[in-house]
Design a protein around this nucleic acid. Structure first.
Lengths: 342, 342
DNA sequence: AAGCTTTAAGTTACCCGTAACGTAAGCATA
DNA sequence: TATGCTTACGTTACGGGTAACTTAAAGCTT
């Protein structure tokens, strides 16, 4: 019934060695190019390797030595959000160029999923982990501490990371947006986002945003946290809900650009003029934002670069190079044309 | 210098067993809940497991038995393309729910990258592979054949797959689009896409498209294959190039929606009316397409479902269930409002 | 030619679990 | 009381590589 698969019929090093008439150890040396064999022997072994189609078993190698694997576990909340897809792309490209492989985990923004994934992936002896976010469950934190491998926490800059951290200060980015909107003359401002119950970067942004708005004499009159994904359509109906509540909102800040596009679309469908009738500001600066007719007011974050930086820090640490433990990748406000100009 | 990391200081089963005063084997039985031990023993072992923070080493488990790992290798061309990000999300979610992990490989649309990745990932004894596309290098094909593990080729439906295949018939989808545009009264049609030298699904779509257009009495007067990524900006400048060549194009079909948005933007910036002055058709139906004011004429493909289906086929095969080897996930034409209505 | 070093191997032990088999104690049965 | 069966363990061997050690032969010195 349950047929044994793979391995059994795979060619092993012993078989190559036997075919070449040498010991396993000699074949191993040849394959690693470690020296200690004659040219004749090398050629004989390599000939058999090609002939038999031998593929080394890295599981055994890791197992044998004290080396850790070439895997790096990478946890990402979700890929529906283009931003994280780009971060992942940056990570995987860079890791790949250093001979490392990405083991993916989509945590769906929950600590429980993340914890489960961490447990599983650690059992595979990864060389290191790259995690999105700085908030982990207590059990996860304990496992991470005990793992004794390099860990990079990305996205949300963490001045006291588990190990290393790269990202931006979300509070500051929210603060800057709040200050900008205030400087544009808005004082009654709304917010549309999603809630994931747990603390996260979006919440931190909102905190910074409110602080700046209130500090500037304005008010965040309405905060809407939908139980939904942070995508276009929730942005659309979230805007509808917010405006229906009649709180005199002049401008809306969204959790991200996708939601802001939804809001833009809602306003357009109701004949409202942007920014004359209402201001719209997103966050994240999606690639499409730069090509759509109306330039969305947003906050640019170098996503690809962020991913690459995370991978570089990981590689550096794995190679025992000195690595800064905390790296701020920065952000940049995109004034755009969807809020009125002061 | 090169400090030994991980493993060495990780708690092993023997240590748990010793602490609990039983043999390794008994501890192993307890952890697998396989029976053959007393309650008292179980409690003692589990107490030590918690106390020492023992995490099993799956490498050793795989190694010990003849089982293969819980890894599934997944190769994807790139994540800048939202479409593939969604496919990957579908795959990883589904695999994860069955206790499998995704080992990612971004092939950047090249067979050489794919081949390198396949070689590496096979050395990790994956349970199976999910590959995007049906075209692989000869060496890759040989390795895949010899691997003796389930393989799902996705995206481009393949009636004679290496093992299993799920996707759509790109020729047909191009054909349908060609027929539709022809039926809208267009006869001088242009195409803007990218070339990756090798055969791929986009090329197949174009073939089907040309066939339908020519069969309907029209002509694909200008085909532009840029050496660039299939994203917004190349769509923008590709449109500029195409129109500058003055070939009297009435309508443009793009490799994907992102490029079509770029084209839409170019036309808008030049004061051209869509669809009065020129028709624009994309492919793929990006999520944003449904929320932008103007509904883009496109071809809808259920990306997430495609990914899930691929994962399901993989899981089915791994569980020795009967699995259809070829699954057509289908597509649907979105008439949209960016081409004129016949 | 004896003694030493280098080269090109082979041998052994080990990594961490699990399969397969062995065994001692407890209990029921004839 | 002898026999067989069950329960609850323990012991041994193994998987595919590699580190560390050993060995045999060849090359070099003096």
């Amino acid at each position: 019934m349950k047929e044994k698969n793979s391995k059994n019929n795979r060619i092993s090093l012993s078989e190559v060695a036997r075919a070449a008439g040498v010991s396993k150890m000699t074949a191993s040396r040849v394959l690693r190019g470690e020296g200690g064999y004659s040219e004749k022997t090398r050629d004989r072994v390599m000939e058999k390797v090609d002939q038999l189609g031998y593929l080394p078993n890295r599981l055994a190698t890791v197992f044998a030595g004290d080396q850790s694997s070439t895997f790096v576990g990478v946890s990402i909340p979700d890929l529906g959000n283009e931003v994280f897809a780009q971060v992942l792309e940056g990570i995987d490209r860079k890791l790949g160029s250093f001979g490392r492989q990405t083991v993916l985990g989509l945590t769906q923004h929950t600590q429980q999923e993340e914890e489960n994934w961490i447990r599983t992936v650690l059992s595979w002896q990864p060389a290191g982990l790259i995690l999105t976010g700085r908030y982990h469950s207590p059990r996860a934190t304990e496992m991470l501490r005990n793992a004794g491998i390099p860990i990079v926490e990305i996205w949300d800059l963490n001045s006291s990371p588990l190990d290393m951290s790269v990202g931006i200060n979300h509070f500051d980015s929210g603060f800057d947006m709040g200050r900008y909107l205030t400087s544009c003359g808005y004082s009654n401002i709304g917010y549309v986002g999603t809630s994931h119950d747990t603390a996260n970067a979006a919440t931190t942004r909102l905190d910074g945003f409110c602080k700046a708005v209130e500090g500037g004499g304005g008010r965040v009159v309405k905060q809407l946290c939908l139980h939904d994904t942070a995508t276009y359509y929730p942005g659309f109906y979230g805007t509808e809900q917010l405006l229906a509540s009649g709180s005199g909102v002049e401008c809306i800040f969204y959790q991200n650009d996708a939601m802001a596009f939804g809001g833009l679309q809602y306003c357009g469908s109701k004949g409202m003029q942007v920014p004359q009738d209402i201001g719209i500001a997103g966050w994240g600066d999606l690639p499409i934002a730069s090509v759509i007719a109306r330039r969305l007011t947003s906050m640019h974050v170098p996503h690809l670069k962020l991913g690459q930086a995370a991978a570089e820090m990981m590689i550096g640490r794995l190679n025992d190079e000195p690595v800064e433990t905390c790296r701020d990748i920065g952000f940049r406000l995109i004034p755009g044309t969807t809020v009125r100009n002061a």
